[in-house]
Amino acid sequence: MKQFVTRRLGYSLLSLLVLSLTIFFFVRVTGDPAALLVEPGASEDDIAAIHHKFGLDKPLWAQYGLFMMSLLRGDFGQSFYYQTPVLDLYFDRLPNSLLLALVAMAFSLAVGIPTGILAAVRVGRFWDSAGKLFALLGLSLPSFFVGLVLILLFSVYLGWLPSSGSGGVLHILMPAFALGWYFAAAHMRLTRSSMLEVLGSEYVKLARLKGLPQSWVIGKHAFKNALIPVVTLAGINLVLMINVAVVVETVFAWPGVGRLLYEGISFRDFPVVQGIVIMGGTMIVVVNLLVDVVYAVIDPRIRLEK
């Protein structure tokens, strides 16, 4: 088990290094941030002064070196635009993103797992077809569209829910639904297919042959096995939800990390973009690691693998 964790940890650090290189060079391809920070018609000297202030006049490799050095000290640099540390900005917004992702995840699991099991147990019948339709809609409707339809229905026509911002319980319902909608369908489909595979297995047949009640056969023998891939997917999806909510957060003006990234890209605020991407990447890597460990705890076969 120790060896397993160590090896996975090594892979994780390697992926992060590659990610930092990629984002550092790609973000610099988008253009010169100084152009957005100065008045129109500013002199060459003013621009050079800004370049010098942010260290943009040094060679790229030196910039990367400095960036990585401070990163190792836990310093993500200062935002060009806000003139405050990136980490402060990030941690200001993170709780909102986390809250949104958790509510969206709870919604997607509460809908996805039971409907997936129902569809698998009643395969080929009404509930299975209904589930398939739901999955099709969930996977094919983009979240900005779902978001706009929700705003139209619940804010404009019915006037029940606020269309943007944060603060109350009511504010989170629509963005969480718009964000969780796609994931509910994904979780439903995976639960269904994984459940179907397990229901056809010999050990489920043996469980039936033992005379166990249907609830044991499905709830104990089938469910736990079918859940393994769903747990993996949900773990990765939670982190995805925090990091891909850019569109939903922008549509609903939800003050999360996603919207901060959107702003960072618009203003060519390199430290902000780099910081958010690296934090996101770290999260994805850490969760992948955790999922692997949880996996090993649930499934005794993985523990012993060399």
Partner: peptide, 11 residues
């Protein structure tokens, strides 16, 4: 059942 490798639940 005929397949002893598959007829026990691995978990």
């Amino acid at each position: 059942l005929q397949d002893p490798m598959a007829s026990l639940n691995p978990l």
